[in-house]
Simulated scan of single mutants.
Amino acid sequence: MTQRLQGRTALVTGSTSNIGRAIATALAAEGAHVAVSGRDEDRGRAVVDAVRAAGGTADFVRADLDGSSAASRDLAERALDVLGGRVDVLVNNAGIFPLHSTADADDALVDRVLAVNVKAPFFLTQALVPSMAAAGGGVVINLGSWVARLALPSSPVYSSSKGAVETLTRAWSAELAPQNIRVNAISPGVVRDSEPDGHDTLEAIMAGTPAGATGRPEAIAAAAVYLASDDAAFVHGTVLDVDGGRTGVAVVAG
Rank of each mutant, 00 (worst) to 15 (best):
T2N: 15
R4Y: 10
R4Q: 11
G7F: 12
L11R: 14
T13K: 03
S17Q: 12
S17P: 00
N18Y: 09
G20E: 13
R21H: 15
A22P: 00
T25E: 09
L27A: 06
A32G: 12
A32N: 15
S37P: 05
A50I: 01
V51N: 02
R52H: 11
A53G: 15
A53W: 14
A54M: 03
G55H: 10
G56D: 03
T57S: 15
R62I: 06
R62P: 12
A63G: 08
L65H: 07
S69F: 13
S69Y: 11
D74S: 02
A76N: 00
L80P: 06
L83K: 07
V87L: 10
V87I: 11
D88E: 09
N92K: 06
N93G: 08
P98E: 02
H100D: 01
S101N: 09
D104S: 03
D104V: 09
D104G: 02
A105C: 01
A105Q: 10
D107A: 01
V113N: 06
A115C: 05
N117C: 01
V118L: 02
V118E: 08
K119A: 02
Q126D: 11
Q126S: 11
A127G: 12
P130R: 15
S131G: 08
A133Q: 05
A133F: 08
G138Q: 07
G138W: 06
V140D: 12
G144M: 11
S145P: 03
A148D: 07
R149K: 11
L150E: 14
L152N: 06
P153N: 01
S154D: 06
P156F: 10
P156R: 10
P156M: 13
V157F: 02
S159I: 04
S160T: 01
S160R: 00
G163W: 05
A164D: 14
V165F: 07
T167W: 08
T167D: 05
R170P: 06
A171Y: 08
E175H: 06
Q179P: 04
I181E: 10
V183P: 03
A185P: 05
G189Y: 13
V190D: 04
R192A: 02
T201A: 01
L202D: 07
A204E: 13
M206D: 15
M206I: 15
G208R: 00
T209K: 08
T209D: 04
P210T: 10
A211I: 04
A213D: 01
R216H: 11
A221N: 11
A221G: 12
A224M: 15
Y226D: 03
L227S: 02
L227R: 02
A228K: 07
S229D: 00
S229H: 11
D230I: 07
F234D: 06
V235Q: 01
L240Y: 14
D241T: 06
R246S: 14
T247M: 00
G248R: 14
V249D: 04
A250Q: 03
V251H: 12
V252L: 10
